[in-house]
Amino acid sequence: MSSPILRVDVASLILTHPIMNASGILGSEPEHIDVMASWGLAAIVSKTITPEPREGNAPPIIMPLRNGGFINAVGLANRGKKSVKELCNRAKKLGIPLIISIGGSSSKDFVDVAEEAERCGANAVELNLSCPHTPGYGIEIGFDPSTVFRVVKDVVGVLTIPVIVKLGLSDRVVESAGKALEAGAKALTLINTIRAMAIDVHSARPLLSNIFGGLSGPPIHPIAVRVVYEVYKEYQPDIIGCGGITTWEDAAEIILAGAKAVQIGSALALGRARFVVQGVLRGLVRWLKELGLRSVAEAVGLAHRR
């Protein structure tokens, strides 16, 4: 499904439509890139890559919840910096834009993987400053606007490809967003999963081996819409909206709040990816026409009209 009306330009990337996957769904092996390319995404976001390989947590790592969401603590499992080249080569071969998601515990880590991503021909990088469940990797950085500024500045300083910054829910998310933009981020991905916990009531034990995890899926969508709305209101930057998007209405809603593109994560599970992507795209085309709009760009931030 591709229609000229869906074409978007976000973070200096020209995409055939606004849907990419959210980082964390597959994306750590070249074969994953093949699978994801078959889903009809406009761009692929890799799993978060750290300089060194990480084993990740022991199962259970992802559990479905009664409220229709998921809780996960995969633990940033990935094969390290050395896997970037294979991922980039596979995406190039398939002709699909690839954004390398990067995780680290210091500015140096981010710079290290970002340089590798650029060398290998990635189309952009997305700095994961918001992983909510792995101590030292992510949210501690994203929570502090001055740290966000430093990390983003350091990465932007060494790259020519676009730098996207993924932030999570925090009291100071608008401030952090401002700092990321000030440091040179081309776009913001909002939001990551939200630090959460689930307990099995029969055994009185936490559901995840890691105890804490990130909440994703439909329950977090209204929060994502709110954050996108607030950040857009303040700075009107390029935003990639992420959080519980499952249907075209969810995508339309976050676009109206201010997102130019969207990422879908949990809804791609259980073999439904192709169906979900096609459904959202078809719905968006119908919706844009119904509103008399000629492009996605014309819908971005429309909910801010007074």
Binding site: E31, D34, S38, I61, N72, A77, L270, G271
Partner: peptide, 22 residues
């Protein structure tokens, strides 16, 4: 590891297929 097509641990290399889905 997850059984739901999200984590990708069960990729049947070198095929682009996941054991838990396909």
């Amino acid at each position: 590891k997850c059984g739901m097509g999200m984590c990708g641990s069960c990729i049947v290399k070198p095929l682009p297929k996941l054991l838990c889905i396909d």
